[in-house]
Design a protein around this nucleic acid. Structure first.
Lengths: 217, 217
DNA sequence: ACTGAAACGGAAAGCCTTTCCGGAATTATA
DNA sequence: TATAATTCCGGAAAGGCTTTCCGTTTCAGT
């Protein structure tokens, strides 16, 4: 047959084998599941077994464990970013925003092992934080813009600041109750709603509020 | 009546062997050093070699690695708490407070592996956060009280809130420049100084630590 | 000094990770 | 469809680190 192509970009490049692609998919899926149940330090075999592949396959795709972890996290970040449009289509702008932040909160708060990885100082994770910002800021920005345009949300917060605040607030300190983060975020969102005229814009300035003293005694 | 002293608190209890005590000390010392240079995942042998003991000794004292890590952290916390009085003796109250927070900041910020451990979700570290509060809150409280009594610091912040704020602010996000935390803390302290009348009490607003419920008063 | 208990050290066992390569599976070509 | 050229797979084997185990050593108390 005539050159089915030439399409393969000049030549010499083959299409990636479909089984390889499939296996990689399986691995990411399995890793996500295992990380959830057994933590990011779970034995590799547990992952390969669940994925139905040999260990060799895992190590060919991800020579270091950090690569796998990174890939899984990036995947979740992508999923989070991609969730934006669907929410925007199904809800009013302000609600869509709230729902999306809910999803983000859950992501940050539940992935304890991931938070640990991020804080490990391992250079392997260096790009991750930036990746998160790059991917999520536009998604959040779009939701914010829509909500602002609809007059449902005040305009004074940037996507970056909001992301940053959510990330820090939701990173769980072992001691505090689990949904502390969620409550904080809800509070922010409510504060942003235009109906609410009571308080100063949150995070714009540290507005006063009650006496903090509370030296318990 | 093979009895005897009864001296050792009723009986049956022997004094802990001094070599054991010494070895334990060596291990903690060595672990601290090794964790610093090679991270908390450094091979056990590196630690035992530095401490001059056999591996068996390490595992007898700390059956799990997390036990060792926990012990080292608690030790550092103690050291931090103990540093209070000395600082108070050598500086004016406000300066002593600033210096102490400096020390705390450094502790939190430099111990990346420790932060990761804390966020790992491993139940082994469950008590640590509480331990930190218990030990450090009184130390900080004393410094605060002194400074307040001297009229050098405003009275409206509780040790708990301040500790909590420092801990969260200094836990480094990989992306931000390293001394971001330090700057934030400096800012807080400056804000607390009585000379400074410009701003509202910092961190009065969003951060509150515990169950914020208590709205009654 | 003597004795029994406590603690030691390091060899050995066990588990994981990581490498390696013969063979199977897939794509491209005819 | 058949064949050749690649790519990818799987799991055995190697290497390393952790954890156990037990004979020996050291210490507290008489």
């Amino acid at each position: 047959m005539p050159e089915t192509t030439g399409s393969r970009a000049s030549m010499g490049t083959r299409r990636k084998r479909t089984d390889a692609q499939r296996n990689l998919e399986s691995l990411l899926e399995a890793a996500k599941a295992v990380f959830m149940t057994s933590g990011v330090d779970a034995p590799a075999k547990e992952i390969t077994d669940l994925a139905g592949v040999g260990v060799g396959t895992l190590y060919r795709h991800f020579p270091q464990r950090s690569h796998l972890i990174k890939a899984v996290i990036e995947r979740e970040i992508d999923a989070c970013a991609d969730a934006g449009p669907a929410l925007a289509a199904e809800h009013t702008p302000a609600t869509a925003l709230a729902r999306w932040l809910d999803r983000l909160t859950e992501f940050v708060a539940t992935k304890r092992g991931f938070a640990a990885a991020l804080h490990s100082g391992d250079p392997a994770y260096d790009g991750l934080s930036a990746y998160l910002m790059e991917k999520l800021a536009p998604a959040l920005g779009s939701l914010l813009d829509t909500a602002v345009a609809a007059g449902e949300i005040r305009p004074e917060v940037s996507p970056q600041d909001l992301l940053y605040a959510v990330a820090k607030l939701c990173t769980p300190l072992p001691t505090e109750e689990p949904d502390h983060g969620r409550r904080m975020v809800t509070l922010i969102v409510d504060g942003l709603r235009t109906g609410n005229t009571s308080a100063a814009p949150p995070f714009a300035n540290p507005g006063r509020s009650g006496p903090v003293a509370d030296r318990r005694e």
